[in-house]
């Protein structure tokens, strides 16, 4: 039971990624596909953050072990656990995945903005944001270019 609970995160993240990816590859609407892509990218972040969680840890902002905040944090912790996994008497969660995902989120919004800007231009040029219709129009154009010459 506890194995399932403690691995639930990964399974949930896997399903979220699949949901995002499914929208990207199955939908024909360009805007909807960008939403799917954003979900796919966000879920990747959740995977990293799950990896960096430390039981009874706190956010990686250094606290003085003698401060009242720290006392409150440490009240119900096993001293041996703190001694083994803490730094200067405080247990922190792993900061590295946080840094990486901060970067990934920013990359995600950059992609989203550029993708949507292109989608807007597609609408202006083709009068549609449905990939199926655009493909038909493109095909037509290629065929016309052929018959003109």
């Amino acid at each position: 039971m506890s194995f399932i609970l403690l691995h639930f995160n990964y399974v949930a993240v896997a399903i979220l990624m699949m949901a995002g990816l499914f929208v990207v590859v199955s939908s024909s609407n360009l805007i909807k596909r960008m939403i799917g892509l954003a979900i796919f990218q966000t879920s990747t972040g959740l995977l990293y953050i799950s990896l960096g969680k430390v039981s009874s840890g706190t956010a990686a902002i250094t606290v003085d072990a003698a401060s009242p905040e720290k006392q409150a944090l440490a009240n119900h912790l096993d001293p041996a656990y703190v001694a083994q996994y803490g730094v200067a008497g405080v247990v922190y969660s792993n900061p590295l995945p946080h840094v990486l995902i901060l970067t990934a989120i920013v990359v995600g919004v950059a992609t989203l903005a550029v993708g949507l800007a292109i989608a807007v231009r597609v609408r202006e040029a083709f009068g549609s944001v449905e990939a199926d219709e655009i493909e038909v129009l493109s095909r037509l154009e290629s065929a016309q270019a052929g018959s003109q010459a």
Binding site: A59, P97, I105, L116
Partner: peptide, 25 residues
């Protein structure tokens, strides 16, 4: 999950900027 910085960023970027850009689109 103790990721305060990431949460802050996700809130302003994911829920803020992304939504505005999507609505604009």
């Amino acid at each position: 999950m103790d990721a305060a910085d990431v949460a802050f960023t996700e809130a302003v970027i994911g829920a803020g900027v992304s939504t505005i850009v999507l609505l604009g689109a």
